[in-house]
Design a binder for these strands. Structure first.
Length: 273
DNA sequence: CTTGTGCCCTGACCGC
DNA sequence: TGCGGTCAGGGCACAA
């Protein structure tokens, strides 16, 4: 499931393949994956346009065009956006293929939760989820002071808060659990009960865990691959996610699974409080 | 305002 | 072998 490190990895791997490339044609195999506009307009406005440098905001991939429009992609659970050199035969879950002047861009999504938008760059704010995003956790907006201040006003459990994209952008279920484990904080801990040191530990864990995930090219549990079709390596470094019943690598406690905010939540009840 | 629930969607997995 | 049920979860609509 692509979270910030995965989407950033996709962005970086697609950048040299897309920047400056012109769209020769677009084939939409499943119009339902396009949030806006209608498939016909989507194709018409893409044809002949050239991609600029890709960007990322939270889990959204932003692909600006030289026409003033931008292709926006959210991969949700199982979406994949890959560049391939040769002609591509659409597979079962292939929904869109862009033919470029060099290669092909392919959008696939097994569960079809992902969405594509084509909007004017000046109207990106009309994409609701994108407009409401909190600060980038690896950017300068997320300082320890800012986080401590925001935590103080929140009664919600830390796990809920980390998953809230309007609080901080880009954290999903896997990294949320890894962050809380590194910080030594219980997922159900109320945000406003953290002392100064704990808030600082959470801040450091957010940045550290996401940076490591990114350095490892993301986490591949099942579906995720980057823009070149390469799997990530961070799954080999997960401390608690998906490890219920195993020993906590830090203290030897037993990793436990509970349900928080409707999500499977893995933590160590011994060293996370 | 916050918090919870169901929905979308398919494949993997489990028990019988 | 097959079949039904359950689970996985990001974001959103909707309800309490």
């Amino acid at each position: 499931m692509p979270e910030l490190p995965e989407v950033e990895t996709i962005k970086r791997s697609l950048a040299p393949r897309l920047a400056g490339r012109t769209v020769r044609g677009v084939v939409v195999y499943n119009p339902r994956v396009i949030a806006r506009p209608e498939a016909e307009e989507f194709c018409r406005r893409l044809r002949g346009a050239a991609f600029g440098a890709p960007a990322r905001r939270g889990k959204y991939l932003l692909l600006p065009l030289n026409t003033g429009w931008a292709l926006v992609v959210h991969l949700r659970m199982t979406g994949r956006l890959t560049w391939q050199p040769g002609p591509v035969a659409p597979a079962k879950h292939t929904h869109v293929i862009w033919e470029l002047d060099d290669g092909f861009l392919v959008y696939e999504d097994l569960r079809r939760f992902g969405r594509l938008w084509l909007v004017k760059e000046t109207e990106l704010g009309e994409i609701k989820g994108l407009a409401g995003l909190g600060p980038e956790p690896l950017g300068e907006g997320l300082t320890a002071e800012w986080l401590a201040g925001r935590l103080a006003g929140q009664r919600r459990p830390l796990k809920n808060l980390l998953l809230d994209q309007t609080f901080v952008a880009g954290i999903g279920n896997i990294y949320a659990d890894e962050i809380l484990h590194r910080a030594g904080l219980h997922p159900l801990r109320r945000a406003n009960t953290l002392d100064e040191a704990e808030a600082a530990a959470l801040w450091a864990a957010i940045r550290g865990v996401l940076a490591e995930g990114l350095a490892h090219g993301g986490t591949t549990i099942r579906d995720y691959v980057d823009g070149e079709g390469e799997s990530g390596r961070h799954q080999d470094f997960l401390q608690v996610y998906g490890r219920a019943g195993e020993k906590c690598p830090r203290c030897g406690g037993t990793v436990t699974r509970i349900k928080v905010a409707g999500r499977s939540t893995y933590f160590c009840p011994v060293c996370q409080s």
